[in-house]
Design a protein around this nucleic acid. Structure first.
Lengths: 190, 190, 190, 190
DNA sequence: CCATAATCGAGACGGTACGTCACGTCTTGAG
DNA sequence: CTCAAGACGTGACGTACCGTCTCGATTATGG
């Protein structure tokens, strides 16, 4: 008769992974402010003391959880066709923004007062500038207007999606993305 | 020797005004989640019981405070010159977004879970569509492309400002606004 | 249908009385070290926050509880008959030491490290010297030896009872008390 | 360059001795309740796991520590002179009660709830009756009153010292001891 | 002008969640 | 096989707010 008194402890990497994953989910569900460290611990099947040992602050826990995701920029292959490449990148961004993890990132960073999260905001901004190379090459090819503010164009695309999703709270599908990209591309072209 | 034991009570309208004003300020400073009803009462020089009597819920208090502001849409005069009018409207929007009250609105609504605040989100969205008439008239004049998605254009402008202010956390001045408007207008024109 | 949602709050004096009484009982049952403020609150039917508000420290709570008892020295009437009076006083002391409250006092004070309880120890010691007047008058009457250390005699009686009860853990009845008193009185007489 | 990474392990008897010694010291310093097994281990330069292996319970650890001391009753030589022998025994008792180990014993046993310590209480009581033989011989010699309760007399002496030291918290020197012994002896004599 | 009701201030209280602490158990690896 | 080192689960603790309740004081209102 085997006495299995309690589930075996998950240590080290196993525990860290479970906690960070649950943290991301909770970030997407209730947001940063309402995220509770004890609740994260409970959902992860871990004692809250163990969580506090590794991440003394909620900010540190969230920062590590988000960093484990933002570290992998959604690379995309450039075919050379400007509009198609921009749409491909946009699809990736939309998929990210719609995923639970993306929800977490935006809900946490949109008006981040916690100092621990500040560096992540610039990280996210940097991701926004991903397809910058596409545009500069298009300018060199003469496909876009020479003096255009490319950085602003990308910000505008991202902002349009942001407005749609988190202010108007309406879904952003591929058609919507296409319209935005076309609008901005037309503005850039000449 | 006059003994002024304590400040005279403020009742009725006077108290309501003081509380709502403090609520708006606090919304801009700490946001909706961290807003504390007892703290609002203290800052307003009012007993917390009085606040709870009138607004049983934090959501109701904030809703009434925001409603007292969003009720006044920032009207603007249309000169007939499309670009100038759009810029004028944008200046108003920027001024609002930069004011403490605007900070309050955006911080409260950007990811609003509180059911009491949902109606306010659509209110804000409606404001965004303010200059819709300008664009439709411009289309009729042949100044803009006939099939253009005008609503999306306005959302894009608003989104660009939002991205600039609340994601990249960089200031949005008149020059920035002009660039955004020109980019979108160029996209709409041909 | 009367809705009695929860038991009505006990305020002020009522709550203080209930808490102090439970504190005394618990002192007698588990002693000072193992006494738990939250448990006292629960047994008193009071929220633990309320207890911590009035008595920030366990020591203060216990001190006030004990002070409310030690404040009433068990007066006894002096008949003039030395032995009978001493026995009467001893009976009172035994009754006190055997009562739950007395248990509380001794268990709390016997090895009191808590600085809050130090003054109570001297209070208890003072009580021990209660029948000092009896002895001095007996000396003046020539009933006791002139140079006798009366204070030491009383300490000895008290100590004998203490040893019996709290070291040997055997009951101390009236017969035992009588033997002790007689032993000491015989020592004092000649 | 010799790398002495850490102190060499102490095993078996060496470790046991170190732990028990530290346990006695801590008993005298902080008492039984506040004695912490991990702290004892740390002070003994031993890992707490090792302590828990041998003594699963704090009570068992303390019992073994105290037993290693109480096993050696403080023998004294009887000269035949009753008062002198009694004083000699009392000096030993005082020395014991004043030593750190004695402090430990009394603080641990005075109101011992831990069931592991109960047998030690009777052990201590038995020690109190050490000089019983002296008194019975004195009775046979006619030096003391025949019907006297000798056991009670010894308890009374011990109790007087106990009262002095642990209730009144005043020092007990040789003069005090002498007075107590004389008081009781006078009571016993006739 | 005064009496009476509505409103407000002041503070005690119950309740919930939190982060900390010390303890004892367990796992792993070194001696 | 024994011990050291450290991670982990467990329970209790004291604190910080929050929202409710009670009571007394103040203000407005109608006779």
């Amino acid at each position: 008769m085997t006495k299995r008194k309690r589930p075996p402890q998950r240590r080290g990497e196993a525990m860290v992974g479970a906690v960070l994953q649950v943290t991301l989910v909770q970030l997407g569900v209730v947001g940063f402010e309402r995220l509770s460290v004890p609740e994260v611990a409970a959902l992860a099947g871990v004692n809250k003391t163990s969580v506090y040992r590794r991440w003394p602050t909620k900010g540190e826990l969230v920062r590590e959880a988000l960093a484990s995701v933002l570290g992998e920029p959604p690379d995309f292959v450039a075919t050379g066709e400007l509009r198609a490449d921009l749409l491909a990148w946009g699809r990736g961004a939309l998929a990210f923004a719609g995923s639970p993890v993306g929800q977490a990132v935006f809900r946490a960073l949109l008006s981040a007062d916690d100092p621990d999260l500040r560096p992540l905001a610039s990280e996210l901004t940097r991701t926004t500038k991903g397809p910058m190379g596409l545009l500069t090459r298009a300018v060199r090819r003469g496909e876009l207007r020479p003096g255009a503010n490319l950085e602003l164009a990308l910000s505008t695309i991202a902002g349009a999606l942001l407005q749609r999703l988190h202010v108007e709270h309406r879904p952003a599908d591929l058609a919507y993305l296409t319209q935005v990209v076309d609008l901005v591309l037309d503005g850039l072209r000449r």
